[in-house]
Design a binder for these strands. Structure first.
Lengths: 212, 212
DNA sequence: ATCATTTTAGGGTGATTACCCTAATTCCCC
DNA sequence: GGGGAATTAGGGTAATCACCCTAAAATGAT
């Protein structure tokens, strides 16, 4: 892996774990195992590094937003959940620490509201597909609210569990708990076998893809 | 108002608006209209100031947790919503900026998980009261999940609207939007007149109590 | 081997910030 | 008026941090 990419990945990890404002450039260089001067060779300022992270984030979101429900709405919904949670987790400091980095990631702040709305659209489309094949019993005019509430639960699940004093480090299962929590919104209106299958899908999601 | 209390209230406001880490003692003194030395006269360190805020927070929570549903479950639920949101809003930096203040408010971190669990209990009890008098059609074994999901929506509503790019300043209506969002979880299972009454209650909540 | 790029080591700067210190002044209460 | 508490003004310290600078060394590609 090229040093520049390693810096970006390491910064992302540290910003997520420690909070953007708490990570010093000295700390970042040490974690990368490089001299601090080398960090400055690759990135002129912190803001430039943040831009690089923002670009990865944007790519991740755009790819995820391009997902569409296909011939297996249930499996597809599980796949969407997996992608959404992986992204929310991988880039959590971007949402959480917006005050700390202020205007330094303009591309992100300019697009975040739009991306969020599109996420509601996407989740709604997937839920609608479940309704259409009769696996979910939910009034069509209430799907938007369900999509929004689902997204909120997914978006804030990790923080919720942190506030509950539960471990959210990698491997601790916080992402799985979040996915299950989200399911409680409507599992009682899912066809029973479908509910079981979604639950099984959550259990089977790869540790690696979720950093659960 | 005594200067000490004024400092605490002003700090709370600034920490909420700007983020804990972004507020300098110079800024705080200026906003209070006092010399910085006077700030240090009243509080030896930032941590001591944070403790004072934490004590107010604890008092607010304990008082709110003491609320119980009475003879008007619907009106009581509205009152609970009002109290919960007022508190979540008034002390939002305490939840949000936990990483920034770290161990400096131990009393809060030691109790926050417990308070949150008790909040779930409380919301559940209020919802159960609605079920008991037939205003809410919800299976008893699913009330806990509804209480938790409701609390999550209330807890993160302001942040959600900020991420959506919607105004959350005082008077912008973000708290009302959060209350309404929460209602979408179960309003379709409320007796219609009850749903209308809850909605009306949200519209009538005092601007002052909600800093909506 | 040569050349360009990357990395190191080590010293540095300027800005920022929490908090200190001191003496004088003002305020408040009896 | 007296005494104690609160407030001011102004100067200061030490620590921290993003980023700079420079020359030498190391690496990678041809």
């Amino acid at each position: 892996m090229k040093t520049r990419d390693r810096i970006v990945a390491t910064a992302l990890g540290l910003f997520n774990e420690q909070g953007y404002g708490a990570v010093t450039t000295a700390m970042l260089a040490a974690q990368c195992g490089i001299a601090e001067g080398n960090l400055w060779y690759h990135f002129k300022t912190r803001a430039v590094l943040l831009d690089a992270i923002g670009e990865r984030f944007a790519s991740s979101i755009e790819a995820r937003l391009a997902m569409r429900p296909g011939s297996d709405p249930l499996g597809d919904y599980a796949a969407l959940l997996e992608a959404v949670m992986a992204e929310f987790r991988a880039f959590r400091f971007i949402y959480r620490d917006q005050r700390a980095y202020g205007d330094d990631a303009e591309m992100v702040s300019n697009n975040a509201p739009r991306w969020l709305e599109m996420t509601f659209d996407q989740v709604e489309a997937y839920l609608a597909a479940l309704v259409d094949i009769g696996l979910l019993d939910w009034p069509r005019e209430r799907l938007r609210d369900l999509a929004i509430n689902s997204t909120i639960i997914l978006r804030y699940g990790l923080e919720h569990y942190r506030e509950l004093g539960e471990p959210i480090a990698e491997g601790a299962g916080a992402v799985r708990r979040t996915l299950r929590r989200q399911l409680t919104l409507f599992e009682h209106r899912l066809e029973p076998a479908a509910a079981n299958r979604l639950q099984a899908a959550i259990e089977e999601m790869g540790e690696e893809s979720l950093a659960a």
